[in-house]
Amino acid sequence: MAEHNESGKNAEEQAAEWLKSKGYEHLESNFRHGHAEIDLIMKYKGLLIFVEVKYRSGTGFGYAEEFVDATKRKLIIKAADQYIHQIDWHKDIRFDIVGVYKDRHGNLNFKSFEDAFY
């Protein structure tokens, strides 16, 4: 696996643990539907939450939330629609972005963008 893929996978695992520490329930990772993928599917306070995780080793090229473009959002929504249908969900949903940033000391920091798009 390429190093950037390994970093991304590790960031997704760390983001899931971070969200669980805040009371979220982890339902799925890397849910795929066609070409679309949802990094994390969580449940929190009655909401079904679809989370796109973006890893950045720095902010020189931009922030995590800037890397979820319209095409990526459409793919995530398409996969979410499939998941909602698959589990027969009839309550509210939310789309979040979690930025995972590595500081100059190698520590990971997290920034959550709740209700980032729809």
Rank of each mutant, 00 (worst) to 15 (best):
E3M: 05
K9R: 14
N10K: 15
E13M: 10
Q14Y: 02
A16W: 03
K22Y: 07
K22T: 02
E25H: 10
H26A: 04
E28V: 11
S29P: 00
N30H: 08
N30K: 13
N30M: 08
R32H: 07
H33N: 13
H33W: 15
H33S: 10
G34W: 06
G34F: 05
A36R: 06
A36F: 04
E37C: 08
D39G: 01
L40W: 09
K43H: 12
Y44Q: 14
Y44H: 15
I49Q: 08
I49P: 00
F50E: 00
V51E: 09
K54T: 06
K54R: 13
G58S: 15
G60A: 12
G60P: 01
F61T: 15
G62M: 08
G62K: 04
Y63G: 06
A64Y: 03
E65Y: 14
E66P: 02
E66C: 06
F67E: 08
T71W: 12
T71M: 13
K72H: 08
K72G: 02
R73I: 15
I76L: 08
A79E: 00
Q82A: 14
Y83Q: 04
Y83V: 07
Y83S: 04
I84T: 14
H85A: 08
H85D: 14
Q86W: 04
Q86A: 15
I87A: 03
D92M: 06
D92L: 09
I93W: 08
R94L: 07
F95L: 07
D96F: 13
I97F: 11
V100R: 06
Y101I: 05
Y101F: 14
K102T: 09
H105Q: 13
G106M: 03
G106K: 12
G106D: 09
N107V: 05
N107G: 03
N109L: 15
K111H: 08
S112Y: 06
S112I: 14
E114F: 10
E114V: 12
A116M: 04
F117E: 04
